[in-house]
């Protein structure tokens, strides 16, 4: 046999090490960005937290008044995100069950709907805001809790649907067949078997959507408005935490800025809690899935 001979080289070992170093450096940078952001919010937000902050509405106007807290924004955000999440469930759950239980494999409708949700996921929230605004003009609504709920539910239902779809897709076909074999209709199978089997995953999807909804500002700025008061009706404007940050950060008055920091702290805390809980649910869900 002819041995043609290969040169021995060290260069590639150096290249390997350089790139590995760069990779570790990048990972480190990205993770420290996260820590830096959370750190900044805690350092600024924690000193601004006190009992008045979370039990009072702003006194003397949210933009100028030095007294009071952000109860209006906390309650407003919970109402708004809660309402939008509820509406989104009403749309997402039937749609996802339909896609996974009623349709045949390789159906065009399924492909098109999933594709459409993926595209909607990428649509910027400001566009949902603008769209919500056109709906409100059409219906003759003014900036209100209801307007905000409509805009945000449009924003979050594709996210919720896709997240639900991911878990429900994993349910083995055999489980559905077993249910049919017992004489159950598709509707019974969908709501009694599928939803039960996928419950933790469905809850995770709901939480993810809620988290996205409560943190979004651009979609509610036209549609929900902002106010010093806690909304007592769907047709009144509602304050939200993200806008409380945005508006109150922009003033020259330090006391008002404190309210922005406190809002940021509370919003971040909500997002953290939502993400931890949904992670726990996901873990629990994957434990039960038969692979």
């Amino acid at each position: 046999m002819v041995r043609l001979g290969l040169p021995h080289m060290n260069k590639r070992r150096i290249e390997e090490n350089i790139f590995k170093g760069l990779m570790i450096f990048s990972t480190f940078i990205i993770l420290s960005c996260l820590l830096l952001i959370l750190g900044t919010i805690i350092i600024k937000g924690l000193p601004a937290m006190n009992l008045a902050m979370i039990t009072q509405t702003p006194k003397g106007g949210y933009y100028l008044g030095k007294e009071g807290g952000i109860l209006n924004a906390i309650i407003g955000s919970l109402y708004l995100a809660g309402g939008a999440t509820f509406l989104a469930i009403l749309i997402s759950l039937p749609v996802v069950l339909y896609l996974n239980v009623y349709t045949k494999k390789g159906s065009r409708l399924v492909f098109f709907t999933r594709f459409s949700f993926d595209v909607l996921w990428g649509v910027p929230s400001i566009v949902y805001g603008a769209f919500g605004f056109t709906i409100m003009l059409f219906l003759g609504l003014r900036a209100s809790l209801l307007g905000g709920i409509i805009a945000v539910s449009f924003l979050i239902f594709p996210i919720m649907s896709r997240a639900m779809d991911e878990v429900i897709r994993m349910i083995p076909e055999e489980l559905l067949d077993a249910s049919y074999a017992l004489g159950a209709t598709r509707l019974e199978t969908a709501f009694k078997i599928v939803t039960r089997q996928a419950l933790p995953g469905i809850l995770t999807a709901v939480l993810i959507a809620f988290g996205r909804g409560i943190g979004d500002a651009a979609s509610v700025i036209f549609t929900a408005g902002f106010t010093d008061h806690i909304p007592y009706s769907l047709f009144r404007p509602a304050a939200t935490l993200p806008l409380a940050i945005f508006f109150q950060l922009g003033t020259p008055i330090p006391e008002v800025q404190e309210r922005a920091y406190a809002s940021a702290f509370i919003l971040t805390a909500i997002i953290l809690i939502v993400s931890v809980v949904s992670r726990i649910l996901t873990k629990r869900f994957t434990k039960h899935v038969v692979k």
Binding site: L6, H8, M9, K11, R12
Partner: peptide
Amino acid sequence: GPRIHGMKDKKKLGEMVEH
């Protein structure tokens, strides 16, 4: 294989591939 071990000579590479 020869390339990742540092072989650059085009003619020799061609011979190796054929071989």
